[in-house]
Every structure is written in C-alpha cells, then in structure tokens.
C-alpha cells in the first residue's frame, strides 16, 4: 500500500468518525426540544471560514502555520465533510427561500468545483509528466512562436533548396493554421491526439511527391508538429489546472458573504428560545 493510499484511508476514516459524531450529536439534539440547526450552522460557518482561510495561508508562506500539504488534506476532508453537515443542517436538498436557495447553490457549486479541482489535480499531472519535458506555462506562447518560426524556416529553406513548392503548398494548406496559435476551447475541454495523427498521416501521404531536399524538411516538420502538439497539450491541461481555481475561489467569497448574512438572519429571526 502506498503512502498516499494509507493516508487516504486514514483521513477518510477520521472524516467518517467525525461525521458520525456530528450525526449522533444532531440526533441527540433533535430528540430534545433543542434545535441542532444553530449548532450545525455554526459548525458549517466555521468550516467555511477554515476552508477559505487556506487561501490566506497561501499568502503567508513565511509564517510557521503548518505545511501546505497538511492544510490541503484538512481542506479536502473538511470540505467533503461540510457536504454531510450541510445535509444535516438544511434537511432538504433544496431550500425553498430565495436567499437560502442561493446559498445552497453557491455551496454546491463551491464544493463541486473543489471536487472537480481535486480530480483534475490528481489526474492531469501524470498526463503532463508523460508528455515531453517540463514546460513552464508562462513560456508556452513564446515556445509556440519559436516552433512556428522554425517551421516557416524549414519550409522556406526547402523551397529555396529544391525549387519545388509541394511542401510549401502543403504547409500553407494544412499546417499553417496548426502552427498559427492555440487550439480552440474544445481541445481545452478534451484534448485528443486526433489532429496530430491526421496531420502526420497526411504528411506521410504527401511525402511521395516530395523531392529529396523537401523530404529532409518534411522530416523536421514531423518533429515540429509533435513539439507543437505537445505544447498545445501542456497549454490546455495546465490552463485547466489553473482555471478551475478561478471558479472555486470566486465562489468562495460569495459563499462567505451569503453564509454570514444567513447567520445574521438566523439569529435575528430566531424564535426557538424564549
């Protein structure tokens, strides 16, 4: 069993234990005339603040506040735990008040984006590690331009050397667009190697019409196509890894606002205790 599996089992069991404890407490409260909503509400609010404070922790790397790894573990498991506490607190999956429905939607979206992010952060890195060298995200546009320049040089050289324009024509028709820039949003959502394979096939097919000099150029184009595709892949996947946080953090502060307002309302309009 790997270290991570052991840790996952340990943390998940702790979470289940904690949730069981909370369920037990809520049951005990509900059995009496006391309301558990205030208790679970405060627990949720505290959890939301704790979860949001991870962002603050990241801004304070120079304080000995514990390692980010530990924070993330807490963040993940407390975050998943809040779903359970939320269910205990709200009772229904869908509250009927406007404000509370808005709060629930924000909460579900925040947790959902977090879970999506968790999935992405655990699945994308191995994909990236398999494809090419490490490429820093910020440098990708520059690399892309470099690849394009190299491809154009290759084509121009082969035209100059051979005098034939077969490769150049092919480049203009099929490869120019490929080298020109980033891929579309569809590739961002679901990157496939279809285009690369198609281009490779077509280049393979066109080879028989090429002169010897052009063959050499074509060979180098092969490498450049591969390089460009790798760049696109890194671009798309790293972008996804960065973009999900936009949603997650953006929702977080809205959630905090709504939760605080909801708490205020709950207190002000509370009629449970004489």
């Amino acid at each position: 069993m790997s270290f991570f599996t052991r840790r996952r089992i340990r943390n998940a069991s702790l979470l289940v234990l904690a949730l069981a404890g909370i369920v037990w407490w809520v049951r005990a409260r509900e059995q009496t005339l006391d309301s558990s909503a205030l208790g679970t509400g405060y627990l949720l609010l505290a959890a939301v603040f704790f979860l949001a404070s991870y962002n603050v922790r990241k801004k304070l790397p120079f304080l000995p506040l514990g390692g980010s790894t530990a924070w993330l573990q807490w963040h993940i498991y407390v975050g998943i735990g809040t779903v359970g506490v939320f269910a205990l607190h709200a009772r229904t999956a869908w509250p009927s008040g406007w404000l509370e429905a808005l709060l629930a939607v924000t909460f579900y979206l925040t947790v959902g984006s977090g879970l999506v992010g968790l999935y992405l952060t655990r699945t994308i890195p191995p994909q990236l590690a398999r494809v090419s060298d490490e490429i820093t995200y910020e440098r990708i546009p520059a690399f892309r331009r470099q690849v394009r320049r190299q491809a154009e040089e290759v084509v121009l050289e082969s035209v100059a050397a051979s005098g034939a324009t077969t490769l150049a024509d092919f480049y203009t028709a099929r490869l120019y667009g490929f080298f020109a820039g980033a891929r579309g949003w569809r590739y961002l959502v679901r990157p496939t190697s279809a285009l690369r394979r198609a281009l490779m096939r077509e280049m393979q097919d066109v080879r028989r019409y090429l002169s010897e000099q052009e063959q050499i150029g074509c060979e180098r184009l092969f490498t450049l196509v591969r390089r460009k595709d790798d760049l696109d892949f890194h671009d798309a996947r790293q972008k996804v890894l960065k973009l999900w946080l936009f949603g997650h953090i953006g929702l977080t502060y809205a959630l905090v606002l709504l939760a605080v307002l909801h708490g205020l309302l709950a207190h002000a309009f509370h009629g449970g205790v004489a």
């Binding site: 008040g97 809205a254 709504l258």
Partner: peptide
C-alpha cells in the same frame, strides 16, 4: 476575477435586501 465575483455577490445581496424584495428574499420558505 475573485474581487469581481465578491462584488457581484455583494451587489446581488444588496438588491435582494432592498425594500421591495426584502421580505420575499429573506423568507426561508412558505
């Protein structure tokens, strides 16, 4: 982006809590 989201949320809440809507907005259910 995050600041914009927060301001948006604050704006929506301000609208919801403005006089005409308020009672309907804060009602937790029928």
């Amino acid at each position: 982006f995050v600041t914009a989201c927060t301001l948006l949320a604050a704006g929506v809440l301000t609208i919801l809590l403005s006089a005409d809507w308020r009672d309907r907005a804060i009602s937790p259910g029928p």
